[in-house]
Simulated scan of single mutants.
Amino acid sequence: MAGSLHDQLLNMGLANKTQAKKAKESKRKQAKKKKSGQNVEDNSAAIQAQVEQQRQEKQARDRALNQQREEERLRRAALAEARQLLAQHAQPAPQEGPLDYNFVHNRIIKTLHLDRTQHTQLSRGTLAIALLEKGYGLIADDIAARIEEKDPSLVIRIRPEPEADPDDPYADYQIPDDLMW
């Protein structure tokens, strides 16, 4: 291929005549300034600073995105671990039992039919209610605490009532947990 790079670019259609003319003119001006001993404006430093700034901004965006992805991955792993603990340790609640245990879930009063030992353990806080895929189940309180750390929406823990004040005049008149209205 004969001819200058300028001619080749024009022939291939990658540049038009006005772009070529501007490039040739700016090159001629810089060469003239160099010959006369004047400082040639060095735009390369400004361009490099701008490129460096863009690179740093991109790195900051990438770091933030990676951190967000890592947090999402950890949240999903914790949720999967909580569901695995539920699957391993939860027992389905009995369908029939002599005692009813009422509790609140999503502002709705629900009822579990339990035997006396389960009812007592649930009232004292040694058992907790687990939200299973098909209804409710019972789970030990220590495992419920581990699940609650990861996803509090999967368990309903019953907090035992604090000890009564010794100076309370009605301390002798406790309302039993199994009182039926």
Rank of each mutant, 00 (worst) to 15 (best):
A2H: 09
S4H: 02
L5W: 09
Q8A: 15
L10E: 08
G13L: 07
L14F: 14
L14C: 08
A15V: 15
A15Q: 11
N16F: 06
K17R: 13
Q19F: 11
A20R: 10
K24Q: 14
K24L: 13
E25W: 07
S26N: 13
K27L: 13
R28S: 13
K29D: 15
K32T: 14
K33P: 00
S36Y: 03
S36M: 12
G37Q: 05
Q38C: 03
N39F: 03
N39Q: 10
N43L: 15
N43K: 09
S44G: 00
S44P: 00
I47N: 09
Q48D: 10
Q50P: 00
E52K: 11
Q54K: 12
Q56H: 04
K58S: 13
A60H: 06
A60R: 12
D62G: 03
A64S: 11
L65W: 05
N66Y: 01
Q67K: 13
E70H: 07
E70G: 00
E71C: 08
R75G: 03
R75V: 00
R76L: 14
A77E: 15
A78M: 03
A78V: 02
L79I: 13
A80W: 00
E81T: 15
A82T: 11
A82Q: 03
L85V: 06
L85K: 06
L86V: 13
H89N: 10
Q91C: 04
P94Q: 07
Q95M: 06
E96H: 12
P98C: 06
L99Q: 11
N102S: 10
N102M: 05
N102C: 07
H105I: 06
N106A: 11
I108L: 08
T111S: 08
H113P: 02
L114Q: 03
L114Y: 08
D115R: 02
D115I: 02
T120C: 10
L122N: 04
S123Q: 06
S123R: 08
T126P: 04
L127K: 09
A128S: 15
L132E: 01
L132Q: 09
E133Q: 14
K134Q: 12
G135E: 07
G135A: 07
G135C: 04
Y136L: 01
D141G: 02
I143P: 00
I143Y: 08
A144S: 02
A144I: 02
I147N: 06
E148Q: 12
L154F: 05
I156C: 07
I156R: 14
I156G: 01
R157M: 11
R157V: 05
E161V: 14
P162E: 12
A164I: 14
D165C: 05
D165Y: 04
D167T: 14
D168F: 13
P169M: 00
P169R: 02
Y170N: 10
Y170I: 01
D172I: 05
D172V: 09
Y173M: 08
Y173P: 02
Y173E: 06
Y173V: 05
Q174W: 00
Q174C: 07
I175P: 01
W181F: 13
